[in-house]
Amino acid sequence: MTEEIIIAGFGGQGVLSMGKILAYSGVMQDQEVSWMPSYGPEMRGGTANVTVIVSDERISSPILNKFDTAIILNQQSMDKFEDSVKPGGLLIFDPNGITRFPKRKDINIYSIAASDEAGKLGLSIVFNMMVLGGFLKLKPIVNLENIHKGLEKSLPSRHHKLIPDNEKAIGIGMELIQPIQVLES
Protein backbone atom coordinates (compact mmCIF):
# COMPACT_ATOMS: atom_id res chain seq x y z
CA MET A 1 0.00 0.00 0.00
CA THR A 2 1.21 3.46 -0.89
CA GLU A 3 -1.04 6.49 -0.41
CA GLU A 4 0.16 9.81 -1.83
CA ILE A 5 -1.81 12.75 -0.43
CA ILE A 6 -1.79 16.53 -0.85
CA ILE A 7 -3.53 18.61 1.80
CA ALA A 8 -3.96 22.26 0.83
CA GLY A 9 -5.68 25.33 2.25
CA PHE A 10 -5.07 28.57 4.09
CA GLY A 11 -2.41 29.00 6.73
CA GLY A 12 -4.09 28.60 10.13
CA GLN A 13 -6.52 25.88 9.00
CA GLY A 14 -4.24 23.24 10.45
CA VAL A 15 -3.16 21.85 7.09
CA LEU A 16 0.42 21.14 8.18
CA SER A 17 -0.60 19.68 11.54
CA MET A 18 -3.24 17.44 9.95
CA GLY A 19 -0.49 16.07 7.74
CA LYS A 20 1.83 15.69 10.70
CA ILE A 21 -0.73 13.74 12.75
CA LEU A 22 -1.41 11.47 9.77
CA ALA A 23 2.33 10.95 9.24
CA TYR A 24 2.97 10.25 12.92
CA SER A 25 0.08 7.77 12.97
CA GLY A 26 1.74 6.02 10.04
CA VAL A 27 4.98 5.84 12.02
CA MET A 28 3.08 4.30 14.95
CA GLN A 29 1.72 1.72 12.51
CA ASP A 30 5.28 0.86 11.47
CA GLN A 31 4.87 2.32 7.99
CA GLU A 32 7.23 4.48 5.97
CA VAL A 33 6.15 8.13 5.86
CA SER A 34 7.21 11.46 4.45
CA TRP A 35 5.83 14.94 5.17
CA MET A 36 6.87 17.68 2.79
CA PRO A 37 5.45 21.14 3.57
CA SER A 38 5.28 24.21 1.42
CA TYR A 39 7.62 26.60 3.17
CA GLY A 40 8.30 29.10 0.45
CA PRO A 41 6.67 32.19 -1.01
CA GLU A 42 3.22 30.55 -1.11
CA MET A 43 3.29 30.44 2.70
CA ARG A 44 3.93 34.16 2.80
CA GLY A 45 0.89 34.54 0.51
CA GLY A 46 -1.37 32.89 3.07
CA THR A 47 -1.79 29.44 1.52
CA ALA A 48 -0.23 26.28 2.86
CA ASN A 49 0.06 22.75 1.58
CA VAL A 50 1.73 19.54 2.59
CA THR A 51 2.46 16.31 0.75
CA VAL A 52 2.11 13.25 2.95
CA ILE A 53 3.07 9.77 1.79
CA VAL A 54 2.26 6.68 3.84
CA SER A 55 3.59 3.43 2.47
CA ASP A 56 4.51 -0.16 3.26
CA GLU A 57 7.66 0.31 1.21
CA ARG A 58 10.62 2.66 1.07
CA ILE A 59 9.38 6.01 -0.25
CA SER A 60 11.01 7.24 -3.43
CA SER A 61 10.29 10.91 -4.06
CA PRO A 62 8.89 13.02 -1.21
CA ILE A 63 7.84 15.57 -3.84
CA LEU A 64 5.13 14.62 -6.29
CA ASN A 65 2.99 16.12 -9.02
CA LYS A 66 0.27 13.44 -9.04
CA PHE A 67 -1.67 12.33 -5.97
CA ASP A 68 -3.99 9.50 -4.95
CA THR A 69 -5.89 11.94 -2.75
CA ALA A 70 -6.21 15.73 -2.67
CA ILE A 71 -7.79 17.31 0.43
CA ILE A 72 -8.71 20.84 -0.56
CA LEU A 73 -9.76 23.58 1.83
CA ASN A 74 -9.83 26.76 -0.28
CA GLN A 75 -10.46 27.94 -3.84
CA GLN A 76 -6.80 28.67 -4.64
CA SER A 77 -5.93 25.08 -3.78
CA MET A 78 -8.83 23.76 -5.88
CA ASP A 79 -7.48 25.72 -8.85
CA LYS A 80 -3.97 24.46 -8.24
CA PHE A 81 -4.49 20.79 -7.34
CA GLU A 82 -7.70 19.49 -8.99
CA ASP A 83 -5.72 18.46 -12.04
CA SER A 84 -3.07 16.74 -9.90
CA VAL A 85 -5.37 13.95 -8.75
CA LYS A 86 -4.57 10.66 -10.48
CA PRO A 87 -7.40 9.28 -12.66
CA GLY A 88 -9.55 7.17 -10.38
CA GLY A 89 -8.21 9.08 -7.38
CA LEU A 90 -10.00 10.95 -4.62
CA LEU A 91 -10.74 14.64 -4.13
CA ILE A 92 -12.19 15.81 -0.82
CA PHE A 93 -13.14 19.46 -0.35
CA ASP A 94 -14.79 21.68 2.22
CA PRO A 95 -17.42 23.75 0.33
CA ASN A 96 -16.90 26.74 2.63
CA GLY A 97 -15.39 29.46 0.44
CA ILE A 98 -15.39 27.30 -2.70
CA THR A 99 -16.74 29.28 -5.65
CA ARG A 100 -15.95 26.80 -8.41
CA PHE A 101 -16.75 23.17 -7.81
CA PRO A 102 -14.48 20.44 -9.20
CA LYS A 103 -15.11 19.53 -12.85
CA ARG A 104 -13.15 16.31 -13.27
CA LYS A 105 -15.24 13.32 -14.40
CA ASP A 106 -12.56 10.66 -13.86
CA ILE A 107 -12.08 10.97 -10.10
CA ASN A 108 -14.09 10.34 -6.94
CA ILE A 109 -15.30 13.56 -5.33
CA TYR A 110 -16.54 13.99 -1.77
CA SER A 111 -17.54 17.09 0.13
CA ILE A 112 -17.21 17.68 3.87
CA ALA A 113 -18.78 20.77 5.44
CA ALA A 114 -16.34 20.64 8.33
CA SER A 115 -15.75 24.35 8.89
CA ASP A 116 -19.51 25.05 9.24
CA GLU A 117 -20.02 22.08 11.55
CA ALA A 118 -16.95 22.85 13.64
CA GLY A 119 -18.15 26.46 14.03
CA LYS A 120 -21.63 25.30 15.15
CA LEU A 121 -20.20 22.88 17.70
CA GLY A 122 -17.57 25.31 18.98
CA LEU A 123 -14.85 22.94 17.80
CA SER A 124 -13.17 25.21 15.27
CA ILE A 125 -9.76 24.44 16.74
CA VAL A 126 -10.10 20.79 15.66
CA PHE A 127 -11.73 21.51 12.29
CA ASN A 128 -8.79 19.88 10.56
CA MET A 129 -9.38 16.61 12.41
CA MET A 130 -12.96 16.50 11.14
CA VAL A 131 -11.56 16.65 7.63
CA LEU A 132 -9.05 13.93 8.50
CA GLY A 133 -11.91 11.82 9.87
CA GLY A 134 -13.75 12.16 6.56
CA PHE A 135 -10.65 11.03 4.70
CA LEU A 136 -10.11 8.05 7.02
CA LYS A 137 -13.73 6.96 6.56
CA LEU A 138 -13.00 6.56 2.84
CA LYS A 139 -9.40 5.37 3.12
CA PRO A 140 -8.71 3.80 6.52
CA ILE A 141 -4.93 3.73 5.96
CA VAL A 142 -4.23 4.20 9.68
CA ASN A 143 -6.38 2.86 12.50
CA LEU A 144 -7.82 4.95 15.34
CA GLU A 145 -5.54 3.46 17.95
CA ASN A 146 -2.51 4.64 16.00
CA ILE A 147 -4.14 8.03 15.38
CA HIS A 148 -4.37 8.34 19.18
CA LYS A 149 -0.67 7.53 19.48
CA GLY A 150 0.07 9.91 16.62
CA LEU A 151 -1.79 12.71 18.43
CA GLU A 152 0.17 12.02 21.60
CA LYS A 153 3.44 12.15 19.71
CA SER A 154 2.77 15.16 17.51
CA LEU A 155 0.99 17.46 19.97
CA PRO A 156 3.13 19.14 22.63
CA SER A 157 2.19 17.81 26.10
CA ARG A 158 0.53 21.13 27.05
CA HIS A 159 -2.04 20.40 24.33
CA HIS A 160 -2.71 16.79 25.34
CA LYS A 161 -5.92 17.91 27.05
CA LEU A 162 -7.24 18.57 23.52
CA ILE A 163 -6.79 14.95 22.42
CA PRO A 164 -10.39 13.93 23.33
CA ASP A 165 -11.76 16.83 21.24
CA ASN A 166 -9.49 15.81 18.36
CA GLU A 167 -10.77 12.25 18.49
CA LYS A 168 -14.38 13.41 18.78
CA ALA A 169 -13.82 15.55 15.67
CA ILE A 170 -12.50 12.56 13.73
CA GLY A 171 -15.72 10.68 14.55
CA ILE A 172 -17.89 13.64 13.49
CA GLY A 173 -15.95 13.96 10.24
CA MET A 174 -16.57 10.31 9.44
CA GLU A 175 -20.33 10.97 9.63
CA LEU A 176 -20.16 14.32 7.85
CA ILE A 177 -18.50 13.37 4.59
CA GLN A 178 -20.85 13.21 1.57
CA PRO A 179 -20.34 11.73 -1.89
CA ILE A 180 -20.63 14.13 -4.84
CA GLN A 181 -19.36 11.84 -7.57
CA VAL A 182 -18.43 8.19 -7.13
CA LEU A 183 -16.94 6.23 -10.01
CA GLU A 184 -18.19 2.75 -10.83
CA SER A 185 -15.58 0.37 -9.52
Binding site: A23, W35, P37, I59, P62, I63
Partner: peptide, 10 residues
Amino acid sequence: DGAIGQMMEK
Protein backbone atom coordinates in the same frame (compact mmCIF):
# COMPACT_ATOMS: atom_id res chain seq x y z
CA ASP B 1 18.84 21.47 0.13
CA GLY B 2 15.77 23.25 1.42
CA ALA B 3 13.41 20.36 0.74
CA ILE B 4 15.37 17.76 2.69
CA GLY B 5 15.92 20.35 5.43
CA GLN B 6 12.20 21.08 5.72
CA MET B 7 10.63 17.68 5.21
CA MET B 8 9.90 15.15 7.93
CA GLU B 9 10.71 11.47 7.71
CA LYS B 10 11.36 8.66 10.14
